[in-house]
């Protein structure tokens, strides 16, 4: 820390403090609203634990899918050049800015019973309507861009020096990918996966529109909170705090990983 010159004018600190307050105050409000005497009972009810378990399970599955699909996609976007690449990148990142309910409608008309692929899926004997698979699809749809975006950034920062050396030493592309590129951006992949997990955990709109809501099958924690709010505001607040806590852990984890990444030579 250099005390002589902080590098920013004082008024900026004041505005920054207002910005931070704007983000932190609502979280403090949740903590203050929690009915601590009933907290344990509220978050351990059958419906709450079912929702939490379902959320963790589907978000973990979605994260695995995001890594499997997103890593190759990020490499293709960062390391190759092809016609329409810019358009593809824009389209891939679209779910970041789309309202989730739009994502849900889009998925409905793709994988729904009467959707684009619905008939083909039906012939194959697959019916994902109102199934946990539908939840995972919705979460993967909204979370995938996070992994692609953060990994593509990591790949561009890392550059291609080591890969070039490996290739001149006679390594085949697959060997270069597995032995050089992937280890190099490993922390980037983990950070992207953590972000995807967090996004999947918070998924609400697309799940509600596309997958439905049934305890233990499709009703994830955000949907449970939304429903509890109808009758038991205290339960909704308690569950919100659980979700906030999980999100804080996830963000802290991602931060640590990225810091560790930055400290590496």
């Amino acid at each position: 820390m250099n005390a002589a010159y902080s590098g920013v004018p004082r008024w900026l600190i004041a505005v920054a403090a207002a910005g931070a307050l704007f983000l932190v105050l609502p979280l403090a409000a949740i903590v203050l609203r929690v009915e601590w005497l009933r907290f344990g009972e509220l978050i351990t009810s059958d419906s709450s634990t079912a929702a939490l378990l379902l959320s963790l399970q589907t978000s973990a599955t979605s994260t695995v899918l995001c890594v499997l699909l997103g890593v190759p996609l990020a490499f293709a976007l960062a390391r190759t050049r092809f016609w329409g690449q810019r358009v593809l990148r824009a389209l891939v990142l679209l779910p970041l800015v789309l309202p989730p309910v739009v994502g849900g409608i889009a998925l409905l008309y793709t994988f729904g019973r009467q959707g684009l692929l619905g008939e083909s899926l039906r012939i194959l004997g697959v019916d994902i309507a109102f199934s946990t698979t539908a939840v995972v699809l919705a979460q993967t749809f909204v979370a995938l861009p996070f992994l692609v975006l953060s990994l593509e950034g990591a790949l561009r920062t890392a550059g291609t020096r080591y890969e070039t050396v490996a290739a001149t030493l006679g390594a085949r592309p697959t060997t270069v990918l597995l032995r050089v590129s992937l280890p190099l951006v490993g922390p980037g992949i983990v950070a992207g996966a953590v972000l995807s997990f967090a996004r999947a955990l918070g998924e609400f709109g697309a799940t509600l529109t596309f997958a439905g809501s049934l305890q233990g099958v499709t009703r994830t924690l955000p949907l449970e909170i939304y429903l509890q709010r109808e009758t038991d505001a205290d339960a909704a607040v308690a569950l919100s705090l659980v979700l906030v806590a999980v999100a804080v852990i996830v963000v802290a984890l991602a931060h640590r990983i990225q810091e560790g990444d930055a400290r590496e030579p």
Partner: peptide, 21 residues
């Protein structure tokens, strides 16, 4: 035995009109 318990009427109508249910 519902396949889904929605939180609003709109969502119930939506699931039926889209052919999901």
């Amino acid at each position: 035995n519902p396949v889904s318990e929605e939180s609003s009427v709109t969502d119930v109508v939506g699931k039926v009109s889209s052919g999901q249910a």
